[in-house]
Design a protein around this nucleic acid. Sequence first.
DNA 1: TTTAGGG
DNA 2: CCCTAAA
Length: 683
Amino acid sequence: MVLHRRLDYGFNGYQVPVVPRASRSARGRVPIKKKFDDQRKRAFEILATVAGKLLLESEGSGCFDSSHGKDQDNRVKNNNKWETEDPGRLSNADPCEKERCDEKPFTCLPRMKGHHQSCTLNEGSHVPDNFGFDISFNSGNAQGSEKASFVEKSAAVNGRRACGSRSCKVGGDSIHGVECATSLSTPVTKRKIEAESSIIRNVKTGNVPFRGTLNDKMVLAREPPALVCSQSNVITPSFRGFIPPGPASWQDDTVKVVCRDDDENSIGCTSTHPSTMLKAYRPLPDIIDRRIRNLSASRCWRVAPNLFRTDKKANPIYHKVKTCYARQRSQRIFSFKRKKFLDRSPLSKSSGRFCCEGIFNSPDKRSNGDNCGAALGGSSSVASQQAPPRSGDCNVKLSIKAFKVPELFIEIPVTATVGSLKRTVMEAVTAILGDELHVGVFLQGKMVRDDSKTLLQTGISQDNKHHSLGFMLEPRHAQIMPPECTEDPPLLPGGTSQQHTKQTASPVLQPGSSNVSQVSPVMNLSSCVETNLGVVPPLVDTSADNAMPKSQALVSVPAISMEALAMFALHQKPGHSEFVQRRIRRPFSVSEVEALVQAVEELGTGRWRDVKLRAFENANHRTYVDLKDKWKTLVHTARISPQQRRGEPVPQELLDRVLAAHSYWSQQQDKHQLKGTGLQLCL
DNA sequence: TTTAGGG
DNA sequence: CCCTAAA
């Protein structure tokens, strides 16, 4: 019996504009211990950093445009203007830029109360301290408070305040500054990214002036990437002039949306649900921004040291940042818990690879030598821009305009809210991006699988083919293991299946729905299977305290699944132990709650280890501390009014049992205490 | 390591 | 969920 008519949305790729952000290394001092809100944010950060670096490197000497600040002072002044969100700044800016912003192209996300903030990087100028990168999606209509909060992020530029949330342009791409990074006097061309990884180690800074092509890119950027339901493949932005005549794979700024329902199991069969998809698409920037915002928020103190060189009076933000710094500092003792982290972090124990390290810095042949550097130094997906090879220098200059993200399938009940849909899409994308990323290269629509081939052999080095070179982000183990998309393995004791059934019947977007995503033939990604075989990717050591799949590209609706997927998207580079990651939030399902209640009823409170062993022995992601915490919240939940409860509703019956068990065991505890006291008194 | 409790 | 004192 079909409880829900489900809609399957296949997102045949997202455009992930490459937006640079600051490199950790350039930031100078890194906090001894820094906890990130979650791994996904870290993944985004990494991605953004990498991508942005690539772009920067490729664009070569991209620096701040002199028109926006011929010297530092002017630039800072401009920064101040940005900070005050003076839209009039645009009047002084490149007309194209203004136009671009007015038309809300994807590269010009509304930020900070709707004002686009951008500047242009040009050769010869410098990157301010808080020049940063982040990722934004191709939605020009991101709204709301998420953006505004960027205003809160501030940083110092060479001792002067500057808004940490600016948008700049690099070769047509927007750069949303998030935080402090390099020294002001550090030209872009000098900036390397050794800190994050050695990705660009071999990159030769492409000294390709992009001015000449800037407008071309702008033309491209001008068109909002409306979600167009078409049969075309995903398209990353490309130069119009370079659009290959070939099959739909290079249509402009379109994102294929494949919509399915239960009657259409055929992968290739697509229908269109434009309105729905547009809605579904929109939340992405919000999410991303939230991630970035949180990220920057979590780090706002990191830039503080620079601020101490500033003049308080002249820089109100100084206080804000300093306050933030002080507060965080007071809250956290920056003790470094690397060991703890390593012990707990699955991936850190395993591959320990940086997200893209395997791509750019792996020992294999896929990226070594100048070819790698060249390709990366300018890696260009779509908006490739190639300088004529100089004699004796056959480097390929590329510029990654955007990454293609693997196709994504979502199944969601028709009864789900739009908000659920948004969240689902977001989480799916997040999960993908949060995974251990692998960069796929496709040339003229075909994936280049042979990593050992040289660019020359592959044809990438040929000018006339450059336009069809693309980069795609794909989960590292996408081809290796079939990801699970079901809820956490039914690790609960007997009776779980019924609970799951109960859960499935819930109209709420429920994890237990056992959604099975469909295989994406395009991406060659495995489908989710309703098994708990625990297939282990060869590259990942699961001896750590988890048995969860680590790589999923296709994601089904369950939020928990999404969380689970993202959970292991931890890209930890050995030695970068400051990246202490917070575990992903994984709300307890009703069945888990039931199992917990049952165990506590039997064992009592205060025996969390036993509870764990009894009811969650195989749920490696649930520690006894987690169970204890959950019980605590359950008790609290049971005591508050149903209106005040949030999250997935717990059946009242369970909550009653919680209260009963809690009071009972509390009594028992009291009795024991009294007993002990009495004994002591007697003695 | 586990418990307990604050954040 | 995190952190940590205390057992």
